[in-house]
Design a protein around this nucleic acid. Structure first.
Lengths: 237, 237
DNA sequence: GTCTATACCACGATAGAC
DNA sequence: GTCTATCGTGGTATAGAC
């Protein structure tokens, strides 16, 4: 029954058959979410999308580039949302520097919104993202660094005002830790459910996670600088 | 020139030809470090180890099981080191509960030791580990959960004494954040070097990272509980 | 038991016809 | 733009030599 249609011009795109590129992106997002990048073959992917095997190569070049396209489609808007929210907070506060928690929430809220929006991939997408950031090949890390660069820099400026005791370099490190805890947390939904048996009905899971993550991260960001000789390696105390 | 030797009993194992299993493990560790799991083919791996292609299947079953074996060989001792160090701290403190920082250092110091020990894979191994924990397939996450379970539970008990304002469940979440920031940090050495241009000669890199990570994590662990209604989703402030 | 040679099938990629 | 056919390489399975 498959053979979706012989040849259809891409004029009136009904819900079922948008243009090939979008169909591939949608199928890729779903499958990468469910089975991961390597475990998803182009054959099953193009089969699910109802397009020819070679279409991926034609439209995206390689499987890796398809992966990047899947990521940008969600990440670009999310990072823009973060920047916009931060700007709004800054505007509303008129000169007075924002609190650390407030700035943090501008980072977390768009991530949470994305996690709840099933139309945009929902929490599964964040799982893919967390996995991507963690590190397969260098190609994807470099890609994401570039993707995040502008957003991170805007937040760095804001945090520097809220945390005057930190140098820009120290803050860079701490923001890296923040991104680490966030990615890891968003990526690890299933493992988490095992670890912390959640009381059933205790609110939506992702929201609950971020409500726990936020105070943790805020406190970490505000922490005093460490003593360079504090972490002794040989003997205790 | 390869053809290492026709048939050698595994009696006197000189440095070059230990038993096949170990040769495979060593080659796998090196190659997984350098190129990642998927990018390393069994053919190049067995070639580097000087063993037959089928030897991996014979000794380890599958490539994934080989990966697990590579991980346990380093992780088991490291987690045991953590437990031993924690026990020593507990013994030395005689009843008085340990500080949060002290307990944390029992987690971080063995990781740092491993990172500095090139004979045990060094920082490259931790990079592989961070990647592994972050998430490829479920199989590796489940494996690592089991691998860490005992260690995590011992530390949970210790932390609960140091942080009486946390329930066991809250602490579980926070320890998860800790592992996240740690894995992410250890995994992302190269991306980090780009982000925070390190002043040359500013101590050993890994040590420096952990000295920055420790106060961040300690403050996060000690943070007060978050207000369930604090993270508003719709409007600012 | 251990190791080897080799055969298998699925994968990502591409060239060239339509 | 899309398709089919095909290539090289990947992980795996097995039959049989030591």
């Amino acid at each position: 029954m498959p053979t979706p249609r012989p040849a259809r011009r891409s004029i009136a795109m009904d819900a079922l058959s948008q243009d090939t590129k979008t169909r591939i992106l949608d199928a890729a997002e779903t499958l990468f979410m469910e089975h991961g990048f390597e475990a998803t073959s182009l054959r099953q992917l193009t089969g699910a999308a109802g397009v020819n095997l070679a279409a991926v190569n034609y439209h995206f070049g390689t499987k890796e580039e398809l992966f990047q396209a899947v990521l940008t489609r969600r990440l670009d808007p999310m990072n823009q949302e973060r920047i916009d929210l931060l700007d709004r907070y800054l505007r509303e506060s008129r000169a007075k520097p924002l609190s650390c928690e407030k700035i943090l929430s501008a980072m977390l809220i768009p991530a949470l919104r994305l996690a709840r929006d099933e139309k945009r991939g929902g929490k599964h997408f964040l799982r893919v993202l967390g996995r991507a950031y963690a590190d397969p090949a260098p190609f994807i890390r470099h890609f994401l660094s570039a993707q995040y660069a502008e957003m991170i820099n805007r937040f760095k400026d804001a945090f520097l005002e809220a945390l005057p005791h930190l140098t820009r370099q120290e803050l860079t490190w701490r923001l890296h830790f923040v991104m680490g805890a966030l990615s890891y947390t968003l990526a690890g939904t299933d493992a988490l459910k095992l670890m912390a048996q959640v009381a059933p009905g205790e609110k939506d899971n992702d929201e609950m996670v971020l409500q726990r993550l936020a105070p943790f991260l805020a406190a970490g960001l505000k922490a005093p600088l460490g003593d360079p000789r504090k972490l002794e390696l040989v003997s205790g105390d």
